[in-house]
Each structure stands twice: as structure tokens, then as C-alpha cells.
């Protein structure tokens, strides 16, 4: 894992996360020749996939032939380190991983799971994509998004603030302002 192999190329990791459930269509979409080639063309060196409870096992590769180095795991107690290491994050539409990624200032592609019954999650990703904080994709459009995205167009997300609502609650309950 370290740079002892003598390669001068710095690691640029793409981290894929599906969250606590499964999202095989996303893992499958990432694990295609065209997507991997496009990522490689864009200078990414590693692909790390958190596949959750999914049954589709992505094909791993050591990346010795100059292609992407592909690894996967099912779950980890915290994906914070994976996110920190990553140069690009491809995530499911859960608000937890969206905001964790945005707060780290990492470029993010959110892929909406269209198989979910109550698909309210797309609302958040759509809204944030409209505000140019992330790219919005469906499993079928993932390749297109990766091929056409320009990371420079992304606007950094300014973290929200819970203080206004805390003030309202305090005032409502008759606590003095301070």
C-alpha cells in the first residue's frame, strides 16, 4: 500500500460507498470497463468500493498493468478515513454520506437508487446538484457523468448551522437568550 514499489505517481483514490444497505446496480455500474477506463484516463489510480450487503462482487485488480487498482470491502465502522483519502467520492443518496463528503470538500457524484420504494432521497441530491455542490447521476448515466464532468464547476458547500433552530427552541421554552 505504501510507495515502496518505486512508482512516482501519487495515489488518487475514487471511493464508492453504498451505505448500510445494498446497491448492486451502483457497484455494477462502477465495475464496468468503460467507467474504470474513464477514471484511469482522468488520472485516478485506485478504486475502493464499500459494497454493503450487496451480492454482486466487483472484480478486483492489482493495477500492475497501469489500470486502476480495485479493492472492495463490505462494511467498516467508519468510512471517515476512506472519505479523507479519496480524491473523488461516488456515493448513494443518503444524507449522512452526502454531508460528510461535502464537509470534507471532496468532489462528489451522488447516484440515486431507483429501486427504492420511497425515493425521497433523490430530492436532496437534485437540490444540491442544482446548487452545483455535487453531480447527480443514475446508475445508467454514471459513465456519462464521469466522462463529461468538470470538477472546477463545483461550488464548495458551506456547512449549515443549527444555532438558529436552537435559539428558537430556547426562546419558545422561555429560556433567556445568551
Amino acid at each position: 500500500m505504501d510507495d515502496s514499489d518505486g512508482s512516482l505517481k501519487p495515489r488518487r483514490i475514487v471511493f464508492v460507498t453504498v451505505g448500510t444497505t445494498s446497491f448492486d446496480t451502483l457497484v455494477r455500474a462502477v465495475d464496468t470497463h468503460e467507467v474504470k477506463e474513464e477514471l484511469s484516463k482522468r488520472g485516478y489510480t485506485d478504486l475502493v468500493i464499500q459494497m454493503g450487503r450487496g451480492s454482486y462482487i466487483p472484480t478486483t485488480s492489482s493495477g500492475e498493468d497501469g489500470s486502476l487498482n480495485v479493492e472492495y470491502f463490505t462494511f467498516s465502522s467508519s468510512i471517515a478515513d476512506n472519505l479523507k483519502e479519496a480524491s473523488l467520492v461516488i456515493s448513494h443518496a443518503g444524507s449522512g454520506s452526502i454531508f460528510e463528503t461535502l464537509r470534507l470538500g471532496k468532489p462528489l457524484i451522488v447516484v440515486v437508487n431507483e429501486d427504492l420504494m420511497d425515493n425521497h432521497q433523490s430530492e436532496l441530491a437534485e437540490e444540491l446538484a442544482e446548487r452545483k455542490h455535487l453531480f447527480y447521476a443514475r446508475p445508467q448515466t454514471l459513465y456519462n457523468i464521469i466522462a463529461t464532468m468538470n470538477l472546477d464547476t463545483l461550488i464548495p458547500y458551506e456547512s449549515g448551522d443549527a444555532v438558529p433552530v436552537a435559539k428558537l427552541i430556547n426562546r419558545f421554552l422561555g429560556f433567556p437568550d445568551d
Binding site: 451505505g19 448500510t20 443518503g94 444524507s95 449522512g96 454531508f99 443549527a162 444555532v163 433552530v165 436552537a166 427552541i169 430556547n170 421554552l173 429560556f175
Partner: peptide, 19 residues
């Protein structure tokens, strides 16, 4: 659960716990 819990703890962090 998940995102809901994260949002709630985020709010609690700015509310005065002693109150």
C-alpha cells in the same frame, strides 16, 4: 436512525445541555 440521528446530535451539540 442514520442521517436522522446525525442531524439530531448536531442540533443537541448547540443546545445548552444543562437546560
Amino acid at each position: 436512525s442514520g442521517g436522522h440521528t446525525a442531524e439530531m446530535l448536531n442540533l443537541l451539540a448547540v443546545l445548552q445541555a444543562n437546560r
